[in-house]
Amino acid sequence: MRKLKEFIIEKLILICGLASIFFVVLIFLFLLKEGLAVFSTVSPFKFLFGKNWYPISDPPQLGILPLILGSLLVTLGAAIISIPIGVGCAVYIAEVAPANLKEILKAGIELLAAIPSVVLGFIGMVTLVPFVKTFFHLPTGLTALSGSIMLAFMAMPTIVSIAEDALYSVPKTYKEGAFALGATHWQTIHRVMLPAASRGIVAAIMLGIGRVIGETMAVMMITGNAAVMPNSIFAPVRTLTATIAAEMGEAVVGSEHYFALFAIGIVLFIISFAINVTADLFLHKRQ
């Protein structure tokens, strides 16, 4: 009886374990099947590097370069803003802040993480967008820059909390060792604490960027959604994710447009995967 129970539980856990892999494989296969179909009408090169995205003209022009650049531009901008602020914030919380302020800051960061992205996008639309418009004297505030700033706010909680954890878990003895050598607080932080926590900090940054690349709702609301080649960070752009979200509803199932959207999904998948692999390689090289 006992043995039977053990057996059943063991198998149940096995099934749970396999299920996650099974579903991932299933999703990936589906994505491939639907997405690769588009390449029967348009060459992969033309798809990736075509400058025109007119999916419903006749014949449809399916070049996603403007979308890829849109995503990269917004992500890059968000990374440039959020990485220094996020890591700096983590260092402040982990190393400098007095105990009570530390708690307040941590609670604040968690609150920031709890804001749904659509709400953040909405607030960005009514506050940030007009601000960017008047501040830079632009015809419209719906630009890649607005998206970057907004997404930086979304990446920040991830970066701060994970980087702070990484710094916190650096053994106290390292710090004492550096202090005992006559290092100042800042020397200790930048020559000992940051290198020792670098793995965790890189992971934090990668996860933050991962969140930015995958974000859909907020960018759709404030980047202007113009699927044209962006010529600067002050121009409206459209990201890969926003394209799928905006157009999937109206694409005719089985049409070229429909397959193209799935192919965009594959591209997104590859980008995310590449980010994770790079992070992984970097992390393991450090050790």
Partner: peptide, 29 residues
């Protein structure tokens, strides 16, 4: 003060650096 008064701890605690940099750390600092 801590430069004048060095300290060696119970558990050896090398910094997460190379052998050379561990020694060079204080000199550079």
């Amino acid at each position: 003060l801590r430069r004048k008064i060095g300290m060696v701890f119970a558990l050896p605690l090398p910094l997460p650096l190379s052998i050379f940099d561990n020694v060079a750390y204080g000199i550079r600092m």
